[in-house]
Amino acid sequence: MDNSSTLRNALMLTPLIGVTHSLMAAVGLCLMFLVVTQLFGLAMGALRSRLVPATRMLASILLAATLTSCAELMAQAWSLQWQQHLGIYGALIALQCVVLEHTGVFQSDWRQRLRLNSLFATLMITLGLLRELIGNGTLGNHLSWLFGATQTDWHGWVLVADGGLRLTTLVPGGFILLGLLIAAWQAWRPTPTH
């Protein structure tokens, strides 16, 4: 693993732990991330050959901030509750776009980008689902906010009447659960024989 992939993965860890306290927040940020990064990749692909190398970073910062701000405004217009629930993590998509551009992800093969996006989306949704199930004892709490519904009387499916393990919805619980998932993946994955 080189330094660029370490930086890229470390920046993905912030929204992965910060937003996955509920399935609604995880799915919402995942959708916003996929839309913004794909639009950013298309726009930078069209601009990259027309820019001198010294101005590429500035152009990518400006483009990423613009696209992320537009996505934030559209999310706020669509569902204010959902957008407020995301907090600062939606704005971090701009930083992620700049890092992905700087490390050359958008110049790489489309299969590698699809693999990276799929892995990030799968991990976000899995962590969101598990943290909500274990932490709150619910499934789909406030998921209607993603569809622009303003009714707040539906709180998903309550699976455990007295709630769950509250630690799981907090940041330390997210790190613990992620560590357990990585350990399970390492144990499940067959070891290569040389």
Rank of each mutant, 00 (worst) to 15 (best):
L139E: 03
P53A: 14
I125C: 06
L31T: 09
S5K: 08
G164N: 11
A184I: 07
G87N: 08
N9D: 06
P190Q: 12
L34V: 11
L31E: 04
V160W: 15
N3H: 13
L180Y: 01
L51C: 07
H194N: 11
L116G: 07
L23R: 02
L51G: 09
S22H: 01
G163H: 10
S144T: 10
R8C: 04
G148V: 15
V27Q: 04
A71G: 01
H21G: 07
S108Q: 14
F33S: 03
A184M: 10
V27S: 09
L95A: 08
T66H: 08
C70E: 05
I93P: 09
M12H: 11
M1R: 08
A64V: 05
M32N: 11
A25L: 02
A77P: 00
W145F: 14
E72A: 13
L86W: 08
N136A: 11
S79A: 15
I17Q: 02
D162N: 09
R8Y: 06
V35N: 02
L170G: 00
L146M: 12
A46I: 13
V158F: 01
G137D: 07
S60W: 09
L23W: 06
F175D: 02
P172V: 04
V27M: 12
Q112P: 01
Q83S: 14
V35F: 09
L58R: 11
L177W: 07
I61G: 02
E101W: 05
L129I: 07
V160A: 13
L139Y: 13
V19A: 13
R115H: 12
T152E: 15
V27H: 06
N141W: 14
D109M: 00
N136D: 10
I17R: 01
S108G: 14
M74K: 00
L165P: 01
L129P: 10
A26V: 04
I93G: 00
V98E: 04
Q84K: 14
Q76A: 12
D162M: 06
S49Y: 08
L58A: 14
M32C: 13
T37H: 05
L73C: 02
G41R: 09
T126M: 10
S4C: 05
R8I: 07
S4N: 09
D2L: 03
D153G: 07
G137T: 04
V105G: 03
H194A: 12
S49A: 15
M24T: 14
N136C: 05
W157V: 15
T169L: 07
S60L: 05
L92V: 01
L51S: 04
W110C: 03
H102C: 01
S22G: 01
A10C: 08
G163V: 10
F33I: 00
